[in-house]
Nucleic acid binder design. Structure first.
Lengths: 194, 194
DNA sequence: ACGACCTATGCAATATTTTGCATAGCATCT
DNA sequence: AGATGCTATGCAAAATATTGCATAGGTCGT
């Protein structure tokens, strides 16, 4: 339901192709909504049938045409109405299997889990770097932004502070795991040459 | 896929009924995984068929029987194996429609959105209070905990620091929105007696 | 030259999640 | 006395999301 409106929101400023949208959902928008290209193409078809978006084709040499989508007036109206409706509040749900796996922490998986935490750390660093760059470039002083862009800023800012918090947590987690490993009885370790 | 293992994880310590599990998914566990009772009953059936959990019935006067589920040895094995497999890393995705709605911030919806933010603030305060109480009671000094409970602590700690970060963000958002409202031209406000 | 990866679109099958409904008795509030 | 809400279970349909496949030419590295 909301993906539909997320797509329309992305089309507020520019016309975009399905491919562009998929790119956007990988990047900035992806912090609070994830969508594969298959989902996006399906929704675009659906939105076209409803008359909420329309597209024009752009020919390209040697490549498939790009279908550039834009909001229609009806779409804009539907989006405005949706914003004021149906707030299905669901508090931050961090749906990452790794948390469940941490509940199962043991000698057998401690190294594996520490490795997975490290991988998340890397990925989050990269994303955070991207977000902070965007903020620096386009949202330097939030108070001077036009109203709508203040909202975009807030979403971005949420991504940034969640990202920082996440990194701090991962570091704490890795430290605790490292400390725990030292305390493990020798029997649980692999061959020790000492 | 992972819900199945989340349920088994919840059964590591105690036997539980579907109802108990639903309760647990509403509370602490719900931070990183949400599941309705319908989903849970379906999964329990599925897990029983696989032989990963089993149950005994407990009669109660005037009420439906409670089916108390516990892990089988096979279930324990499957869970251990899963922890070491298939890490489908997906970075923190904060799937809340409100972020999309913030992208659409305008004079017409600013009050509504501020109200919705406030509602989330209340709900998060409550959850945070619960988590902090749990931590104080059961996870006072993480370094002295047995290994598995260190993992549980880390998940809990993630919930707490995310919750705090979220509250700080909501406050920042509400302030920015309040400031923005003052700057709105009079034409956008309702009748002003001044 | 060959493989890997990027642009660009889309269908189909499966898996997961949500929503609506159904039953049933007890407790508590008004 | 009636309404609401809690315990306790579960089926079925609809909406969403994931995974696998398919096509097609371009670029870049080895």
């Amino acid at each position: 339901m909301a993906l539909r409106f997320a797509i329309m929101t992305a089309l507020l400023d520019d016309e975009m192709s399905g491919y562009d949208l998929a790119r956007a959902f990988d990047k900035s928008l992806g912090f609070f909504w994830h969508a594969s290209h298959q989902q996006i193409y399906r929704e675009l078809k659906n939105l076209s049938e409803r008359g909420w978006v329309a597209h024009r084709a752009e020919r390209q040499a040697g490549r498939p045409e790009r279908h550039l989508y834009h909001l229609t007036d009806a779409g804009r109206g539907a989006l405005d109405a949706w914003v004021l409706q149906d707030d299905r509040m669901r508090l931050q749900e961090s749906k990452d299997e790794l948390y469940i796996k941490l509940y199962n922490l043991s000698e057998h998986n401690i190294d594996y889990l520490a490795g997975r935490l490290l991988a998340r750390r890397e990925a989050m660093m990269e994303r955070l770097y991207l977000y902070e760059r965007i903020r620096r470039r386009h949202y330097g002083d939030p108070h001077t932004l036009p109203l709508r862009r203040k909202g975009v800023y807030l979403a971005l800012q949420s991504g940034i502070s969640q990202g920082r918090q996440y990194l701090a947590w991962v570091d704490e987690a890795l430290e605790l795991l490292a400390g725990a490993k030292e305390e493990l009885p020798a029997s649980a370790l692999s061959v020790d040459p000492a």
